[in-house]
Amino acid sequence: MTHDHDHHDDPRALRAEALESILIERGLVDPARIDAVLDHFENDLGPLNGAQLIARAWTDDAFREHLLRDGTGAMESMGLGGPQVDHLVVVENTDAVHNVVVCTLCSCYPWGLLGLPPAWYKSFAYRSRVVREPRAVLDEMGCTLPDDVEIRVWDSSAEVRYLVLPQRPADVDTTDPGELASRVTRDLMIGVAR
């Protein structure tokens, strides 16, 4: 068995590698399965899935209403879903309201729709500050909101995953789903962009 120790001076990294190696040796986990899982998460899951939901909501009012009323059902009706999105709640940005999503306790995130969360989403700074001072945090992230826009912060829990329905860009006149989806970024769907 080969071991690619990539972080020699970090005892926790060595311990994680040791744990993995013991689990493999005992047949509790198959190394090929580990590779397949990683490949799936890194290559199959990503914001493009969530963007399809948003693009359709921008062009199809009935779907938009369905998505806001029953996020899980609307998502499943498009054949989307996957890990960590058993119960999806979609929150809509308007001229008066901006929504932003966090997980204050750990890193809950709709993997099936957005892929794996970026490092900053899991950072103590983001998790602790976005609840307390969302306007300042968003401003630092390059998302400066007018004072009269209300900010709503949604804290993900064991059961619920939130997704922001951003406002449709004013400069887009296409109804092509692919073209619309290309305008929907991960940050828009987390709510750290507008």
């Binding site: 990539d6 990683l38 890194e42 890990p83 794996l116 969360p117 490092a119 900053w120």
Partner: peptide, 26 residues
């Protein structure tokens, strides 16, 4: 922990992190 400036930034800083993640999911 830096704020996002674009999509597509790294999720894992080191391979051991992606390995332990995938091991957990497996």
């Amino acid at each position: 922990a830096a704020p996002p400036r674009s999509n597509g930034e790294l999720v894992f800083e080191h391979p051991w992190q992606s390995r332990i993640f995938a091991t957990t999911m497996a």
